Every structure is written in C-alpha cells, then in structure tokens.
Simulated assay, not measured.
Amino acid sequence: MLEQPCPASDPHKGEAIIRSERVRRPRGSVVNVVNRIRADIFEGRMTPGHRLVESELTSALNVSRSTIREALNRLVAEGLVQIEPNRGAWVRRTSRQAMRQMFAVRELLEGQAAREMAEKAPGSPQAIARLRHIRAIEAALDLKADALAFMAANKEFHTAVLELSGNEVLQHLVPQLQFPQFRAAFFCFFSPRISEQSMVDHLAIIDAAIEGDADRAQDAMRAHVRGTANLVLTMGDEFFAP
C-alpha cells in the first residue's frame, strides 16, 4: 500500500520533458491530434493548468487551426480540457474535493474488478499468460532510470484488470475516474520509492488473481487505490482547481 508522501511537485516538469523530446508529427486528422494531446496530458507532458495555444499546437503538430479547434472541443467533451471565451484553452484541473470523491468511488469499483478478474483468471490460460507477462515486465523495470516506462506499465496493469474482469460496466466507468488520477500521480512516480511500492502492490494483486484468491485480490486493489489517493491528495494547490 502506498503511504509515502508525494515528493515536491514541479508543474513545469512535464514542459521540460516535452521540450527534451523529438517532436512527433502525426497525420493531420482530428483523431490523431486528440490522441496526441490526450497522451501528452496522461504522460505528464501537459500538466493541469497547462495553456493550450492554438498557434503553438498548429506548428508543433503540423495541422490546421480548424483541426486543433475540433480536437480541443472533443477533449472538452472528455473532461480533459477547459475552454473559456477570450481566455483560451488549458488542461483541466480537478478540485481536491472532487478528486477525493473520485478515489472513493474508484476504490470500490476497481476492487470489484480485481475480484472478478481473480474469479475468472484461473480458468483462462490466456488470462494467466497475460498476467504473468505484465508481472515479468514490471519486475524487470529499472525504476530509478525510467519513470515513464513504469507509467506505461502502470496503465497496462490497470487496463488488464478491467479487461480480465469481463465486466463491461466497470470497463466503461472506471477509466473516467482513472484518467485525471493517473495524470496527477505522474509526478509522484518520479520517486523510485513510490513507484517501487506501487509495483509491489501490482505484483500482489496479480499473484492473488493467478491463484484465484478473489478476496485477497479485491483487498489488495482497494488498499492500492487508497495509497495512491493519499499520494495525490498531498500534492500542491497548483494541481487542483479552486
């Protein structure tokens, strides 16, 4: 269970990362632009409150202003971006209270997903193989050297739990709660101590599922989500809406 406080957060860290990367130029479709901006938000390159300037996005992504505008409107509908007349667009921030409420709901739902995964996994060689593959990848990560690799593995783990649960309602609801929380937790995972504890949690949940222990899988997942909540909710006010 994650209990260590999140290290001091730097809201400009994501901007430094994107400046250090080679600019990727997707094809000029709205879908590709939405996917690129969504990924940049999820992976911390665009932090909560980050301004989304049309001219900069047009140049960086090599697309038209109309494509950028439509992409931003779609991201508004997803709850990831906020636009106000005469003020522009920026990555949406969530209030601390709303984040706390989302974590409380996510703990219940994702705990149920872990339970259902553990109930089904022993009867599915494909599920067991997938869980063992995820376990091997996480166990081999160098957490001190590559926080981004852990974030990718973290996303794959939580996606697998939902998919292997076989519960389509959970598969629809949980990602809506996960996305703003994963985005906020990005900065916490730059601490190897925190990412290591998260990985330990993941491995415990996977082991419980492989063994078919639904109670243990559910309890471990709920503790894991609570631990992540404790980290995120200690972050600075700059990451939250008033």
Score class of each variant (00 low, 15 high):
67 T>V: 15
68 I>S: 12
68 I>Q: 08
69 R>V: 13
69 R>C: 04
70 E>C: 14
73 N>T: 14
75 L>Y: 05
75 L>C: 10
76 V>Q: 15
77 A>H: 08
77 A>D: 15
79 G>Q: 11
79 G>M: 13
79 G>P: 15
81 V>H: 02
82 Q>R: 14
82 Q>G: 01
85 P>V: 00
85 P>A: 07
86 N>V: 05
86 N>M: 09
88 G>L: 02
89 A>M: 01
91 V>L: 00
93 R>Y: 01
95 S>C: 10
95 S>P: 10
95 S>K: 08
95 S>D: 12
98 A>F: 03
98 A>T: 10
99 M>V: 09
99 M>H: 01
100 R>V: 05
101 Q>S: 09
101 Q>C: 06
101 Q>G: 07
102 M>N: 11
102 M>F: 06
103 F>Q: 05
103 F>V: 04
104 A>M: 03
105 V>I: 09
105 V>Y: 03
106 R>K: 08
106 R>F: 03
107 E>I: 02
108 L>P: 01
108 L>V: 12
109 L>A: 11
109 L>K: 05
109 L>D: 04
109 L>S: 05
110 E>L: 05
111 G>K: 01
112 Q>G: 05
112 Q>C: 05
112 Q>W: 04
112 Q>T: 14
114 A>R: 06
114 A>D: 09
115 R>Y: 08
116 E>G: 01
117 M>L: 13
117 M>K: 01
119 E>T: 13
120 K>R: 15
120 K>L: 08
120 K>A: 14
121 A>V: 15
122 P>R: 03
123 G>F: 00
125 P>G: 12
125 P>I: 09
126 Q>G: 04
127 A>C: 02
127 A>H: 05
129 A>I: 07
129 A>E: 14
130 R>Y: 07
130 R>G: 08
130 R>K: 15
130 R>I: 10
132 R>T: 09
135 R>V: 01
137 I>H: 11
137 I>Q: 14
138 E>Y: 05
139 A>P: 00
139 A>F: 00
141 L>Y: 10
141 L>G: 12
141 L>I: 08
142 D>C: 00
142 D>R: 02
143 L>G: 10
145 A>S: 12
146 D>E: 12
146 D>N: 14
148 L>A: 11
148 L>V: 10
148 L>G: 08
149 A>R: 09
150 F>N: 07
150 F>K: 07
150 F>Y: 13
152 A>V: 12
154 N>P: 12
156 E>S: 13
157 F>R: 04
157 F>T: 04
158 H>T: 06
159 T>E: 14
161 V>N: 10
161 V>L: 13
162 L>K: 09
162 L>C: 11
162 L>M: 13
163 E>K: 11
165 S>P: 09
165 S>L: 07
166 G>R: 04
167 N>S: 08
167 N>L: 06
168 E>K: 10
